[in-house]
Simulated scan of single mutants.
Amino acid sequence: MDNDNITLPADTLAILNEFLAERTQREHEEEQRMINKTGKDAHFEEDWQLSQFWYSEKTKQDIGGAVAKIVEEHNASDFRIALLSCPSLYATVKDVHEQVNIFEYDQRFAAYGTDFVHYDFNEVSADYLVEYHKCYDLIIADPPFLSEECMTKMSRIILSLQRNSASKVVFCSGEVVEPWLLACLPLHKCEFRPEHERNLGNEFVSYANFNFDHYIVNK
């Protein structure tokens, strides 16, 4: 018997194709669910060419705990969080709140599905990312470069993403950017100092437009 010549009836073939399509969809949904639930940043290596440096576990937990308190305090189902250029925070923040977007230039993080937003801080047009304008209640940013140009451009994006004047902003960066940053955004330096898995030469600090230290448990 020549197995190569066996064909299935059309109705049976249709049922089989439908079953295979549904199985593929279930597998995709399960994979996406696991991504959304636990994150997979541990599988992504830092790309030094993109100036990526992952936060230490303690820093991630400190920020995650602060975010949980802020979300609980607002008690709003439509509370939205934007993470700009800090992908190592994604899994931690996602664990405490569902409505989070990770804005990243690195396309690898498209693995986070609809939570991922590709962006380039060098884009300066007024309508850039317009579909996300005035959408976020909390914005956490860690610009990739310690330059005046980067601070200026990132600040413009942050201002466009804030839902309103009450939106909270946390900005983590090297202390050397302070004059440029504070000229662009109404922030103040916090006591909280983010740490990284690797020791970096620059002194890193945090800035915010509210009392961020109040929400940090382990100061």
Rank of each mutant, 00 (worst) to 15 (best):
I35E: 13
H43C: 12
L50M: 12
N75I: 06
E57S: 11
V130G: 02
E175F: 10
C172H: 00
D62H: 09
P186D: 09
A68P: 01
G201R: 08
V96W: 08
E178I: 05
F210S: 03
R80S: 07
S173T: 11
H28Y: 13
D120E: 07
I35F: 13
V169R: 01
M1Q: 11
P9E: 12
P143C: 03
I81V: 12
S85Y: 02
E197N: 12
H118G: 09
R156Q: 12
A68D: 05
E149T: 14
M1K: 11
V71A: 06
D2M: 06
A91Y: 03
Y112N: 07
Y132V: 04
H28M: 09
Q49N: 15
A166V: 06
D213L: 07
E18A: 15
K189H: 05
R33V: 07
W48F: 15
E72K: 13
C135T: 15
S56M: 06
R23L: 12
E131S: 14
S160L: 08
I216L: 07
D41K: 13
N218Q: 11
F212H: 01
E197F: 08
T12C: 13
F53C: 01
E175Y: 10
Q107H: 13
D4G: 14
Y136A: 04
Q107V: 15
E203I: 13
F116A: 03
R26K: 14
A76T: 10
W54I: 00
E22Y: 08
N211K: 14
Y90D: 01
E27R: 10
I6C: 05
L16P: 00
R198A: 13
T38A: 14
K153F: 02
